[in-house]
Computed example of a mutant assay.
Amino acid sequence: MSENKTQKMLLDIVFVTIGCMLLAFAITSILKPNGLMTGGITGTSIILEQLLKINYSYLYYGLSLLVLLLAFLVFGKREAYKIITLSILFPILLILFEMNPSPLIENDTFLATIYYGIIAGSGCGLILKRGFSMGGTDTIAKVIHKKILPTMSMSQVILGVDTLIIITSGILFDRTVALYAILTQIVFIKSLDTVMFGLGSKTVKIEIITSAHEEVVAYIINEIRRGISLYDIKGGYTNETKRKIVSICTPREAILIKMYISRIDENAFVDLLPVMTVWGKGLGFQSIVETEGA
């Protein structure tokens, strides 16, 4: 194993472990003691704990392994390999933190909502920044997208799954819990994006040069549901003519594209640029008609 690969592996271990510890701490020391709710497998586990009277950390472990199996059956071992580390490591840490919980905030639901979003979002951001997948809502959304709702984008499916979990919590618990859960998700996503991309724009332009451009184009159009532009370019060093793919998307979608490319072309060149705003037709873009008077 080369020195660079060894260094990358060590950094992966450090960042993923710290990310998992932050997330486990946020759940056991802030979310649970204050009766809060969130989306994903965490929220599902807490809901099932109320119904089945089984500790949510064990339910989380079972659901993680179930999602891992689902990923293997639907997408194959390559997709399952991406989430196997988190499917095993994080539930173990969650169980360990649950054995001796130390509440950070008590009797202040609003403050707990903010700090859970910050700490959990930061932990999740560290994990995703290293190219790993939590194996939760994202994987479930991929299965739904592929088998049931292929016409919807991944972001829409993920939002729909988390919304369904939050609505269910509002029915089983009370409306206030669901309303706080929405605030939690907003702070969580903001913190996650800040860790991954800093405080810059939330729309990005991704530029890709790859020998597998046909597969990447098909993935962006059919899976991510974004438009693309193609340019013929000539390398100054190699003097070779290649195709450059350009797309405007969200940071989360850019990470999904990057992870896909890394599996099919390790020599690909990808750069990401912040975009202040986009005027035109497209998911999340501002209509150019609305800006005419500006």
Score class of each variant (00 low, 15 high):
83 I>F: 12
269 F>W: 01
231 Y>T: 07
247 S>P: 01
77 K>G: 03
285 F>N: 08
233 I>T: 14
126 L>F: 09
293 G>L: 09
194 T>D: 03
32 K>L: 11
159 L>K: 08
85 T>N: 06
101 P>R: 09
75 F>A: 08
92 I>Q: 05
35 G>A: 06
50 Q>E: 12
206 I>Q: 07
267 N>Q: 11
193 D>T: 00
100 N>S: 12
257 I>M: 07
37 M>Y: 10
146 K>F: 15
58 Y>F: 15
167 I>H: 02
216 V>Y: 00
7 Q>G: 00
271 D>R: 05
227 G>A: 01
28 T>R: 09
141 A>C: 12
276 M>T: 13
104 L>Q: 03
156 Q>A: 14
261 I>C: 04
74 V>G: 09
274 P>G: 04
26 A>H: 08
288 I>K: 12
39 G>Q: 08
134 M>R: 04
186 I>H: 03
276 M>R: 10
237 Y>K: 11
67 V>G: 04
30 I>Q: 06
239 N>K: 13
30 I>A: 07
150 P>H: 10
60 Y>D: 02
207 E>H: 02
84 I>G: 03
258 K>G: 10
169 S>E: 06
39 G>I: 09
50 Q>K: 13
286 Q>V: 10
13 I>S: 03
291 T>P: 00
122 S>I: 02
90 F>N: 04
48 L>W: 05
25 F>S: 14
265 D>C: 04
69 L>K: 05
81 Y>M: 12
138 D>V: 09
53 K>Y: 11
207 E>V: 03
260 Y>S: 08
289 V>P: 01
233 I>K: 02
2 S>D: 14
243 R>E: 12
259 M>R: 13
8 K>Y: 02
215 E>Q: 11
72 F>H: 14
216 V>C: 02
97 F>S: 06
53 K>L: 10
223 E>S: 13
232 D>F: 04
19 G>T: 07
150 P>R: 07
76 G>H: 07
10 L>G: 00
157 V>N: 05
272 L>V: 13
66 L>Q: 06
167 I>Q: 06
262 S>F: 01
231 Y>N: 10
51 L>F: 13
224 I>H: 01
126 L>Q: 02
160 G>A: 15
83 I>G: 09
204 V>Q: 08
100 N>G: 02
38 T>E: 14
140 I>W: 13
115 Y>W: 15
21 M>P: 00
110 F>Y: 10
